[in-house]
C-alpha cells in the first residue's frame, strides 16, 4: 500500500501554513528575501525550502483568478533524480523517493534532472555566500509518516486542502472532487499526477490546465531519450566530424602520394 498526498488547489487559500510548517518540523532556516512584486516568497524551492506556494494571476475576461500551487517533490514513480543519480544515493523506499544524506556527494545532477524543480543542493551560508551540499527536498516527513503522523504540511492546512493516505483512496477522493468542480462552474477542473511519470505521489486537484499553475502539462523523465542522446553525440563524432577528416586527410595523403611520385 502506497500513500500519497492530495492537494486540492481549489481549496488552497495560500496562507502558507504548509510552507512554514515544513520549515518548522524539518528545522530548515529562513531565506533572506525581498518583495519582487508578488506575495510569493521565497521565489523558488531550495535546499532549505521544500514546499512553497506558487502564486499565479490570470485574467479571464473581466474576472481575475488567483491560482495557488503547493510546490514540492512529487515522489514520482519514475523519478528522474533517482535515474540520474551517479551514486545511487537517491532511491525509492516504497513510494518515498529519498536522498541518502550519508551517501549523496552533492553533484547537483538531480537538481537539473527534476521536472518539477523540487530538489536542490545549494545553501546560503551565514555570510550570504553560497555553498553546495547534499541534495535536499521534501521527504514526505518520512519520520512522521512512518510513525502514523501526517506530514507537517498536511496536518497544518487550515483550508483542509491537503490530504494524506492510501493513494487509491486519495485518487478516488480527488476524482470525486474534480467531478464536483466540473459540475459547479469549473469545466477545466482536472486531476494531475495519476499517470504522469508512472504516477506521482502528490495528486493535484486543479481548476485550470496544469501549465496555468506553472506545472508541466506533460512532465518528462530526464533520461527518457538518453540513448538517443548518446547516439547523437557518437554519430556527430563519427559522421559529421570524422567525415571531413577522412576526406581532407585522405586527399592530403593522395596528394602527397602523387606529389611524391612526381618528385621521384
Amino acid at each position: 500500500m502506497a500513500n500519497a498526498m492530495l492537494i486540492d488547489e481549489s481549496r488552497c487559500m495560500a496562507c502558507r501554513g504548509c510552507q512554514v510548517a515544513c520549515k518548522q518540523w524539518n528545522d530548515n532556516p529562513a531565506e533572506e528575501t525581498h518583495n519582487w512584486g508578488s506575495y510569493e516568497n521565497p521565489p523558488e524551492l531550495s535546499a532549505i525550502t521544500w514546499t512553497k506556494i506558487k502564486f499565479t494571476e490570470k485574467k479571464e475576461g473581466d474576472e481575475v483568478k488567483w491560482l495557488f500551487l503547493k510546490q514540492g517533490c512529487m515522489h514520482c514513480t519514475e523519478a528522474s533524480c533517482e535515474a540520474v543519480c551517479p551514486t545511487g544515493a537517491i532511491s525509492h523506499q516504497g513510494q518515498y523517493v529519498l536522498v541518502d544524506q550519508e551517501w549523496c556527494i552533492g553533484c547537483g545532477y538531480c537538481v537539473a534532472a527534476c521536472p518539477f524543480d523540487a530538489i536542490h543542493s545549494i545553501f546560503e551560508s551565514e555570510d550570504g555566500g553560497e555553498q553546495k551540499a547534499t541534495a535536499r527536498k521534501c521527504v514526505f516527513c518520512v519520520d512522521r509518516t512512518t510513525n502514523d503522523l501526517p506530514p507537517a504540511c498536511v496536518k497544518t492546512c487550515p483550508a483542509n486542502a491537503l490530504g494524506w493516505g492510501d493513494r487509491d483512496a486519495m485518487l478516488a477522493k480527488a476524482k470525486e472532487r474534480v467531478g464536483v468542480l466540473q459540475a459547479s462552474g469549473f469545466p477545466k477542473a482536472n486531476l494531475y499526477g495519476e499517470h504522469e511519470l508512472g504516477g506521482l505521489h502528490r495528486l493535484y486537484v486543479l481548476v485550470d490546465r496544469p501549465s496555468a499553475y506553472g506545472l508541466p502539462d506533460a512532465p518528462k523523465h530526464a533520461t527518457s531519450t538518453v540513448g538517443a542522446q548518446w547516439l547523437s553525440g557518437i554519430v556527430t563524432a563519427g559522421v559529421v566530424a570524422a567525415v571531413p577528416f577522412w576526406l581532407l586527410f585522405k586527399r592530403q595523403r593522395a596528394k602527397e602520394a602523387s606529389e611524391g611520385g612526381e618528385g621521384q
Binding site: 512554514v20 529562513a30 531565506e31 533572506e32 525581498h34
Partner: peptide, 28 residues
C-alpha cells in the same frame, strides 16, 4: 525569520491601469 521570509517588506498593491497611468512597473 520564517515569517520575514514569506513577506519581507511593505508594498503597495495597485491596478495595472493605475500603474500604467503613473508609469510604474511591478516590483519597482
Amino acid at each position: 525569520p520564517w515569517l520575514a521570509e514569506t513577506q519581507p517588506e511593505t508594498f503597495v498593491e495597485m491596478s495595472p491601469e493605475l500603474a500604467q497611468e503613473k508609469g510604474i512597473a511591478n516590483g519597482e
